[in-house]
Design a binder for these strands. Sequence first.
DNA 1: CATTGTATTTTGTATGTACAACTAAAATAA
DNA 2: TTATTTTAGTTGTACATACAAAATACAATG
Lengths: 154, 154
Amino acid sequence: MSSEINPPANDQTSAPDEAFLHECLYFTTNRLSRAISRIADDAFATTGLAPAYGYLIRLVIGKPGITQKELSEKLYITPSTLTRFIDKLEGKRLVERQVQGKTVLVYPTDKAFELEQPIRQASKKLKETYEAILGKEAAALLTASVENAGVQLE
Amino acid sequence: MSSEINPPANDQTSAPDEAFLHECLYFTTNRLSRAISRIADDAFATTGLAPAYGYLIRLVIGKPGITQKELSEKLYITPSTLTRFIDKLEGKRLVERQVQGKTVLVYPTDKAFELEQPIRQASKKLKETYEAILGKEAAALLTASVENAGVQLE
DNA sequence: CATTGTATTTTGTATGTACAACTAAAATAA
DNA sequence: TTATTTTAGTTGTACATACAAAATACAATG
């Protein structure tokens, strides 16, 4: 048992070195992602939808007949994931597919329009919740940095 | 550009308003999380492990006999998720469980020690990769903000 | 000591997500 | 026009992750 590389003196009582976790963007981002997802789930509970579906529906309402390709690009999820999402929303009669050659156009149903306001409400509540904790200013800054990093790393 | 709330005129040809996505911390964080996870997967490919397992092993090596509870707290994942992770690592003979009453102590195997350096190497490569894209300084700032937000939102 | 409560882990089940392989349609080249 | 390549979407499979409920063990107290 050689000890060539001796990490900072580790007296049994203190925690071992965990800096490598907190200095790692992969780790901290996933942690934040889980935390904010919990908050988002709560905020969207009233809509009966997971937050991701709420955003999808907003896009479909914003552009009825939008293709799945466009949706997957805007949401930054893969086409296969999008297929499953649309399957689910179709099952709930919230959207309809219209096959057009090799592409699929997605349309909102009346039921989707009924959900529009509740979804907006939930989005607002979500934002208010994290702004209350982080501060409005800080939240905006963080969101911009995270957005920017996402763009660059993609 | 003093733009408070002014939904840009929506002439049919341009994209519908998607600001709500890019201004939302939930959305941007999940997007970043997917992007950085892809990079991390690549960096860790040489180890034969997903990045999360690499970090887990580092913690176990840092404190042989660490309990599952401690691990789940340090990694911010739920106990049930941790159980599955340990199951998998045990299956690969990288850790061993030692039941101690109602708790479970986790120990690294020799095989785990052999992986220690490759894992460190992969972590390093991961960091270098995103630092090369974001800039060292910017990456550090972002990581700190994200870490901080994660702490506050938990 | 028996009961009742509490903490740790596991298991069943469900969801989000991806990749690879596949199908079908459209576009392009020969 | 036919053959080839590219594009859009789907399906099979796998993994990370969570929650709720069950199993287990320990602790406290009457």
